[in-house]
Simulated scan of single mutants.
Amino acid sequence: MSYSIYVDGAAPNNQHGCIQGGIGIAAFNEQGELEHQDSITIKRNTTNAELELMALIEGLEYAQDGDVIYSDSDFCVKGYNDWLDSWKERGWRKSDKKPVKNRHLWQQIDELRSKKYVEVFKVKAHSGDKGNDMADLLAVEAAEVD
């Protein structure tokens, strides 16, 4: 059985300093039934990019061979599918020779990617996709400051 796993990160007030963020994950079986959901609160200063990467890591940790992860983050999807190998070849530098941001998270992603075959696809945010909407809601709820 393979799963469709949706991941999302939420960083309220990202432009003005996010003091608490959230991660959401929702996994559906082949029949489209919810099998697993989780929301994780990150209680420290963070950014949307960092939270999206952390959500991808959570999805990869949950995933097994043959599963598919959906993210609404272009950065995560392109990084996973297109850029990761090139960054490693250049010593974790981008094509402009600047260091890759959040390198430690990308290294975790690379390690998880090497252990199982998981595809990562882009899903359009706020487009009515049930899985993405659920992951987004879980992330937003986790990010709400008490």
Rank of each mutant, 00 (worst) to 15 (best):
M1Y: 10
S2P: 06
I5V: 07
Y6V: 00
V7C: 06
A10N: 03
A10V: 09
A10L: 11
P12K: 05
P12V: 10
H16F: 12
H16T: 08
G17N: 05
G17V: 11
G22A: 08
G22I: 11
I23Y: 09
G24L: 05
A26K: 04
A27W: 01
Q31I: 02
Q31N: 10
G32A: 05
G32T: 04
E35H: 11
E35V: 14
H36M: 03
H36I: 03
H36E: 09
D38H: 06
I42F: 08
K43C: 06
K43R: 15
K43D: 05
R44S: 11
N45K: 00
T46N: 07
T46V: 07
T47K: 00
T47M: 03
T47Y: 06
E50I: 02
E50P: 05
L51N: 07
E52T: 03
M54F: 07
A55R: 04
L56I: 09
G59K: 01
G59H: 01
G59T: 00
Q64F: 02
D65S: 15
G66W: 14
D67F: 01
Y70R: 13
Y70C: 03
S71M: 10
S71R: 12
D72S: 05
S73M: 09
F75Y: 15
C76N: 12
V77G: 11
V77L: 08
K78V: 12
Y80S: 13
Y80T: 08
N81V: 13
N81L: 05
N81H: 08
D82F: 09
D82P: 01
W83Y: 15
D85E: 15
W87C: 14
W87I: 15
E89T: 13
G91Y: 05
G91S: 14
W92A: 15
R93Q: 11
K94C: 12
D96S: 13
P99S: 12
P99H: 12
P99A: 12
V100H: 05
V100D: 06
K101A: 14
N102T: 08
R103K: 14
H104N: 15
H104P: 06
Q107Y: 15
Q107G: 03
Q108G: 03
Q108D: 00
I109E: 01
I109H: 08
E111P: 00
L112T: 06
L112Y: 15
S114D: 01
S114Q: 14
S114I: 08
K115L: 10
K116E: 01
Y117S: 14
Y117H: 14
E119L: 13
V120F: 07
A125G: 14
H126I: 06
H126G: 02
S127C: 10
G128A: 07
D129R: 02
D129C: 06
K130N: 04
M134A: 07
A135P: 00
L137D: 03
L137Q: 13
L138Y: 15
L138M: 09
A139I: 14
A139V: 12
A139P: 03
A143W: 05
V145L: 09
D146A: 14
D146M: 07
